[in-house]
Design a protein around this nucleic acid. Sequence first.
DNA 1: CTGAAAGCGCTTACAG
DNA 2: CTGAAAGCGCTTACAG
Lengths: 338, 338
Amino acid sequence: MSTSTIYDIAKAANVSIATVSRVFNNSNSVSPKTKKKIMEIAGTMGYHPKAYAQGLARRNSKMLMILVPVISNYFFMEVLAGIQDKLLEYDYDLNIHNLNSGNSSDINDQVDYVVKRGLADGYILVSVHQQEAYWEQLKSYQIPLVLIDEYHPDFDSVSVDSVEGSYSATKHLIDQGYRKIALISANPSSKPMKDRRSGYKRALEDNGVVVDDKLIIVDTNDYRDGFTEENGYNSMLKILKKHPEVDAVVCASDIQALGAIKAMQDEAKRLPIIGFDDLPISKFLGLSTMKQPMYEMGTLALEKLIQRIKRKDNLISHTVFSPELIKRESSVADSVTV
Amino acid sequence: MSTSTIYDIAKAANVSIATVSRVFNNSNSVSPKTKKKIMEIAGTMGYHPKAYAQGLARRNSKMLMILVPVISNYFFMEVLAGIQDKLLEYDYDLNIHNLNSGNSSDINDQVDYVVKRGLADGYILVSVHQQEAYWEQLKSYQIPLVLIDEYHPDFDSVSVDSVEGSYSATKHLIDQGYRKIALISANPSSKPMKDRRSGYKRALEDNGVVVDDKLIIVDTNDYRDGFTEENGYNSMLKILKKHPEVDAVVCASDIQALGAIKAMQDEAKRLPIIGFDDLPISKFLGLSTMKQPMYEMGTLALEKLIQRIKRKDNLISHTVFSPELIKRESSVADSVTV
DNA sequence: CTGAAAGCGCTTACAG
DNA sequence: CTGAAAGCGCTTACAG
């Protein structure tokens, strides 16, 4: 660690530490001459104000933090891009804290720990799903915080209507005459998955199709909440072997749909299929899907957080986007061939 | 912000702040009784020691930081997984700082800023490629730091032999009789790309094939250093239209290979092709590739960093892995059909 | 434009 | 097992 402090610089420049501090805080009440001298000395000594000392003295950190359970998914990537681009307009550092499910402590405790340590001035929680009791506790800390991909009345939030999205996806298949529609699910207890399942069911019911719970395929492997190619692959295999009556498939995510498509290829079958997300790769594979405005969700969440930091007593606001149906070859009847 | 401090807790519990501090630092020299009382009070008041105050008082943060230019690639994801899993053995927090190329300041300055602020006790730089002069400057700060996907004699590092990997990929195609082998490149000025290009050239030369620089395809769009499907798609289109003599293709990355394959489909052509990375999706698409031990690179880098923090004067160590050739359908002669 | 001094919220010898 | 006090490296009124 370059060990020089503000005292070293002050001594070398023959000024007080207050003056050194001022040049690093861009106070204009420093003469250009001494400013220049201080900057030169700081340069050669490799000095820069230490975050911990500044954070303590200022009582704010000019840092924002993103808390996210799974960094390695495309949804988060795009959300992050939106946050980062918007961040260029503001004077904040950004750090990402990966909530680790492999960790001994659970997500609750990890959020609690990070947030209470107060490293950042505000937090964006992406795809963090908690019990009601925990949200209330979090609320009591009165820390600026916005939710993405989750809804709770007590916090600003930006999310997508998963019920509606799944409804549209299912309806799209129904409209083409399919009736035995399977759902390849992810971890069924997660909030978005519950919503997607209920959208799927409602679409069937609204169109006079009896819901058959056996056609809702849940893989037991919960790695990454089931949002993996393997999950889709195995689920599709199960459909092909145990449910030959199925004539179309709704997937909880594009990544599972990709695995499912591979399974169909391996079995030389072809069923209409639709995903959820719209990964960049999906376009290349002709996968129909429900697109979420991920980038916009990121920019909007950041704006909400900045506003919240400025005025803690602003009214809470919620933004819910509707996913958009992207029709491509995978779900269109006449292009579905073996 | 939950505004209670150690003083509030001390007062409420009728003890000194030293005692409160001790219970939060797991000092065993506190009676179980007062410990319990303090924890209860802290619980109801939502108290937890603030990171900035602790960091300043302790002179270390028990935090590690990853600096990375592009978070949204599979290589980083796997490296991160390795780091995180290994981290469970140690008592450190982990944060990720995304070096933002969209930012006004360049990567140099961003690394400098972050590292000098001293938020973490050590840093892992992933895929950060700098000029020699900057490495020297960084070295002068004497901050614990390890490099992944880059090599510099002054820092511990973990990397892959891109020259050898690219050589093997090219040789694999040559061995099957192909001679007019194109290279779909990424940003040609990046270190790994230079290495991959030279591996490609050497493999050709070693096997009596004259290198034709026109067959090295560089897309002008530098988004994400060219590691995108679009880049691969456009590059392949160019090959098919302008270089019909090409009989096989080496790609700088799997993600580009995916785009390239899509382009071939759209043009109803099929050339043997090989990528570099081994994304999970590649297996499903039958893409041959050069696999890097990303997860292991992460765990190893973390271990090196921990050692470096413990003993700053240990000898610098470098680990270079050899990529492994994964043969799948995309590059095998007899399975290549339109 | 500049300095002296208080304060930010902790930790940690030191003393008992 | 516990407390008083110094110190960590800054910022920021206040005074000049």
